[in-house]
Amino acid sequence: MISIAALIGQVFAIVLALALAPLLTGWVNQWRAWLQNRSAPPLLQPYYTLHKLFHKDVVLAHGASPLFRFAPFIMFGCMLLACGIIPSLSTDLPFAPAADALALVGVFGLARLFISLAAMDIGTSFGTLGARREMLVGFLAEPALLIIIFTVAMIANSTSLATIVETLAYREFAIYPSLAFAGIAFTFVSFAENARVPVDNPATHLELTMIHEAMILEYSGRHLALIEWAASLKLYAYSCLGIALFFPWGIGERDNFLALVAAIPLLLLKLGIGGMLLAIIETINAKVRIFRVPEFLGTAFLLAVLGLLVRLLLEVRA
């Protein structure tokens, strides 16, 4: 039987994700501006943008199929589901049994598939280009992400995210070199997946090397708003996943409502630091050429495999 507290926790986590995701994006943008000596946009700018977009009319391209119209909703739904099953505040999530860590990768993949199909649906050259690049990135990033999850799952002996977080957060203190490898690899993968600087530049539409922005050029109005919101949610989901896997301390246990409340400021703090680090890394790195992206993600894959190997060799035998 699902307890009321758990249900509240679950709903609360999703609502928090919806509310906080644009804020995180705004926070990162603000830091980026400060680091680049620009005057920063307001922290709440993403909300204004969303508000503005929701009130605009949708302009559809000629020949747009229903797929084009459904895709933003599917993407948004996928990201919302991802935020629902990643333990951000508490490990007691009634939705969690629906999808384990491997299915999570699938959920991200589903979103990618639909947005890419939608990008090709219109038939513009930019859309197709972006879709192909997005698939290239996904093709390279997914195996790396899977191996990172395998490594962590081997430590916890489970692929369920809740179990992983419980194992890691309440274990005896121990140094896991494999986790360090996996953590670095995860950072690489999240940069690629969230279209951040070394791989893609979220701030420009002018580059021929853009990936994510190229796919959504044809979108407008509430569709665009949903996609932007989904992108924020994706960043939020990845941040929470990173926190859950590598810095899980402070995430509430089962049947502990107080811990849930205490987890909120801690989560905000971790997200704040994470966003700041993200902005710093984006600022000190230059965007790599698209041909170097496989190299970048290859490194991530390599680190993930190393983590797995180190786990197998150094840590398994008792």
Binding site: I175, P177, S178, A180, F181, L306, V310, L314, E315
Partner: peptide, 8 residues
Amino acid sequence: NLFAAVIL
């Protein structure tokens, strides 16, 4: 182990 992993 950690240092060895770092060396690798």
